[in-house]
């Protein structure tokens, strides 16, 4: 009797009835894994739960975080984008070339975002218009984009004309919040609004959930699918700015393998690979879990090779959980 009342109170506290709670658990159950990691790491290392370390974690995950925020749109609409690692390189080279030619940091950053968005548009157009497999299309554009960045840079890294650009990677707002972390958080909020509160977001879910039903409901499937790839491009172009600022040089050979971590973050965060199911908070949690594996193991002093194994195992666990939850498929 007493127990029952306690339970009801708990549920009321979260302003949810039992049913909402079930949905919440299904969507955000992975959050408890993150919570568990937090507790274990806090106990294991006194250096973990400090403002400095946590803002370090946010800074480290910011690049993967931005990529994951784009990737979640693409995967939710039933696609995949393998070309984002190459986009980072293209963005970097573009920043360097524009900055050294015009001396404008703003133009350089805009250039990175625009060129990546354009390649996203091409990816999306090929996938949606000709109904080609996104895996194959973006595999090909991964090569093309990488090649373009080598051609544009002549194959060499080069220094940037504006040393203050590095502040985007190093600087802190009010001396406390690192800019990369700030950008990541802002983009996450924007992604949340776009995917979960707008009509476009709703169409993304509908297209990924059942493309035929979306068509029969009058959804513009073509532009919805293209849109997700453009968003991916914008996120990749933004990530390229942070990455270039942190390296403080334009490099055509960066970004290899970054698509893997972005996809991993989405999947760990509960994004269904068959499309139609995902949340931005879930993806954020996925990004943080990957970041903590790296950060935590370093703090505890476990060989960094193990973090790769852990990441792999975690993806399998997450996909199994996805299968289990969506077994009704």
């Amino acid at each position: 009797m007493k127990q029952e009342r306690i339970q009801v109170q708990k549920v009321n506290l979260l302003k949810m009835d039992q049913h909402d709670l079930n949905i919440f658990m299904k969507r955000y159950g992975i959050g408890f894994v993150l919570l568990g990691m937090f507790i274990v790491l806090s106990v294991a290392s006194p250096r973990f739960l400090t403002v400095l370390n946590l803002s370090n974690v946010l800074t480290t995950v910011s690049i993967n975080g931005l990529l994951a925020m784009g990737m979640v749109f693409v995967i939710t609409a039933g696609g995949i984008d393998l070309s984002i690692g190459s986009m980072l390189a293209l963005g970097s080279v573009t920043i360097g070339l524009i900055m050294n030619a015009t001396g404008s940091i703003f133009l350089a950053c805009a250039g990175s975002i625009i060129i990546c968005a354009l390649f996203g548009l091409v990816n999306g157009f090929l996938v949606a218009k000709f109904d080609m497999f996104p895996f194959v299309v973006t595999l090909a554009s991964m090569l093309v984009i990488r090649g373009v960045s080598y051609v544009m840079s002549g194959g060499y890294s080069f220094a940037l004309a504006k040393p203050e650009f590095a502040q985007i990677g190093l600087g802190k707002l009010f001396g406390a919040i690192p800019f990369p972390a700030l950008i990541f958080v802002i983009i996450t909020l924007m992604a949340f609004v776009l995917l979960q509160l707008t009509k476009f977001g709703r169409y993304v879910y509908a297209v990924g959930g059942n493309i035929k039903s979306a068509t029969a409901s009058g959804v513009n499937v073509l532009w919805t699918r293209i849109g997700t790839f453009v968003i991916m491009g914008i996120c990749a172009g933004t990530a390229a700015i942070i990455m270039t600022a942190r390296i403080n040089a334009a490099q055509p050979n960066i970004g290899t393998g970054y698509e893997v971590d972005a996809i991993a973050a989405c999947v760990i965060g509960g994004t269904s690979f068959s499309g139609g199911i995902s949340t931005i908070p879930g993806t954020f949690i996925g990004v943080m879990i990957i970041g903590l594996i790296f950060n935590g193991m370093n703090l505890i002093g476990i060989s960094s090779y193990w973090q790769i194994i852990m990441k792999g195992l975690l993806i399998i666990a997450a996909v199994m959980m996805d299968k289990f939850i969506n077994r009704k498929n």
Binding site: L197, T198, K199, R202, A206, N210, S217, V219, G276, N326
Partner: peptide
Amino acid sequence: LCLFRSITENISLPSLRKKHKGILI
């Protein structure tokens, strides 16, 4: 139907375009 989306989302899908001005729902 999109079977794995909510009843609300399924019901409102065709009419979103007309019923909600602007981009937000």
